[in-house]
């Protein structure tokens, strides 16, 4: 007998290796994804949302900019409304701060409750400097997050808030 037909055992071997390989790939792929994720993430962070704020109108006084966009969350899309406090700093750069208090998440406001030159959190009297830096001896332990900013047709665009690294 020259050519043996594939024996039962061989057949099982082949197919099982096949399945195993497939499963391994299934497990490895996400790992590879995690490994290269910073790259993918870079793309996601590059996603900017338009606002109605004219860049030319910005001054050194923080203004409240509300904007909304659609967010797709697994199955359904929902409209999200976000807010930023935006101004130009001494170097004429645009600064856009998240209003979410780093203590427990209330919304802060510029010079709220008559706190000159500070962001104020009404929940437990948290304070931040104009740069977003938290004022010592008030509850927040970290500075306000910052939005990456961009400009399109003279209008401000905002990305995803990131940790603020000012010291």
């Amino acid at each position: 007998m020259g050519k043996q037909p594939v024996s039962r055992r061989q057949f099982l071997n082949y197919t099982l290796t096949g399945v195993g390989g497939f499963m391994a790939a299934g497990m490895l792929m996400p790992m590879v994804r995690f490994a290269v994720d910073p790259v993918l993430k870079g793309e996601a962070a590059g996603e900017f949302h338009p606002t109605q704020q004219k860049v030319a109108d910005l001054t050194d006084v923080p203004v409240r900019v509300d904007f909304s966009y659609e967010q797709t969350d697994a199955w359904y899309t929902s409209e999200v409304t976000s807010t930023a406090w935006v101004y130009k700093n001494d170097q004429d750069e645009i600064v856009a701060l998240s209003p979410i208090c780093k203590h427990l998440g209330c919304t802060v406001s510029w010079e709220g409750n008559d706190h000159k030159d500070r962001f104020f959190c009404p929940c437990h009297n948290g304070l931040y400097e104009k740069s977003g830096k938290n004022v010592p001896n008030t509850p927040p332990l970290k500075p306000l997050d910052v939005y990456p900013t961009a400009e399109k047709d003279g209008l401000l665009q905002l990305g995803k808030p990131e940790a603020n690294n000012i010291v």
């Binding site: 203590h103 427990l104 998440g105 209330c106 919304t107």
Partner: peptide, 10 residues
């Protein structure tokens, strides 16, 4: 919902 967002921490 709105108040929850505004005063989440308290």
């Amino acid at each position: 919902d709105f108040l929850e967002r505004q005063f989440k921490g308290r």
